[in-house]
């Protein structure tokens, strides 16, 4: 071949490109592996340590040498759990409403607007939500229900707003194809789309519904700024909706800004590991159910 050498050169450039791609995968996976290794390695000593005052106890009081993070663990689950219920219910309802235009096939302007708003919600920074809630929600709660306003309830309400777009988008991706598959024959039977969703699609989409809830819970537990700004951050077990709680994430942020080293840091690493485990489990569950994060 006349151009044999240059052909070889070109194909070598293709090889180089593939090598670059491989390198990028190695970099990405390396960074990720390092993250997991570090978190686990730093948290391990806390397991080894015995006696009272370690991370696995019910009292946080650095002045007395007590560094238990179990209250924060409960706080995280409580705040996340309370956020998921309204977030998920509203998400399911909103998603079904978005999927069921009254006029044949074409969503009206209001639906287009709300769908756009849900998209916009995905982009709103959590710290901005937090800022607005500090000056809007917390004072209102204080006025109507008493207390300081910075409470379990306030954090959960804002978290449910935060996870709403995630829930809606996950549901939409899962429900829309099933609805489309049914819609023509269903409409021919005289059912409207909302009826189809309620009677046929939702009962058949248990996995999608569940994975939306799990994903929402994961996001709610993993968020830092809203609990930090709104939950009041008292390191105790919450006894009412209006009492302050401290989540694992808020605890981590507070420890780094207030404490310097020692056992407080052990609790920090432990909290990190717990978050890693919780959210890793969430990812695995979602993947197992075939939904997409």
């Amino acid at each position: 071949m006349r151009n044999a050498t240059s052909v070889r050169r070109m194909s070598r450039s293709g090889e180089a490109g593939l090598a670059m791609l491989r390198l990028s995968v190695v970099l990405a996976m390396g960074g990720m592996a390092l993250l997991f290794l570090m978190v686990v390695a730093f948290a391990l000593p806390a397991f080894v340590q015995n006696g009272g005052g370690g991370p696995f106890s019910w009292s946080w009081s650095p002045g007395h040498g007590e560094f238990g993070i179990l209250p924060m663990m409960v706080g995280s689950v409580a705040v996340g759990g309370l956020a998921v219920i309204p977030g998920w219910v509203t998400g399911v309802c909103l998603c079904c409403w978005l999927l069921s235009p009254t006029r044949a096939g074409r969503p009206g302007p209001w639906r287009v607007l709300v769908a756009g708003l849900v998209r916009v919600m995905t982009a709103v920074p959590t710290v901005v939500y937090g800022f607005a809630a500090v000056f809007l929600l917390a004072p209102s709660l204080r006025m109507w229900l008493g207390g300081s306003g910075f409470s379990w309830l306030a954090a959960s309400v804002m978290l449910s707003v935060l996870i709403l777009p995630t829930v809606v988008l996950v549901l939409q991706a899962g429900l829309a194809p099933r609805l489309e598959a049914l819609s023509l024959s269903g409409v021919a039977l005289g059912m409207n789309r909302l009826e189809l969703l309620w009677h046929l699609v939702l009962p058949a989409s248990r996995a999608t519904l569940l994975s939306a809830a799990v994903l929402g819970f994961g996001r709610a537990v993993g968020d830092t700024m809203l609990p930090l700004m709104l939950a009041g951050n008292a390191p105790v077990m919450p006894d009412s909706l209006l009492s302050g709680v401290r989540t694992l994430t808020a605890h981590m942020a507070l420890v780094t800004s207030n404490e310097v080293g020692g056992q407080a840091y052990d609790s920090l690493f432990m909290a990190g590991l717990l978050l890693l485990v919780i959210n890793g489990t969430v990812s695995l569950v979602i993947r197992h159910m075939g939904g997409r994060a």
Binding site: G218, D223, M252, L275, G280, A293
Partner: peptide
């Protein structure tokens, strides 16, 4: 790789911060 990327996507951002702090 897909599940690794998914898992990373599901990690709370504070864990990444903690990672930097540990580094």
């Amino acid at each position: 790789l897909g599940s690794a990327v998914d898992m990373l996507a599901g990690m709370p951002s504070i864990v990444m911060g903690l990672f930097g702090f540990m580094l």
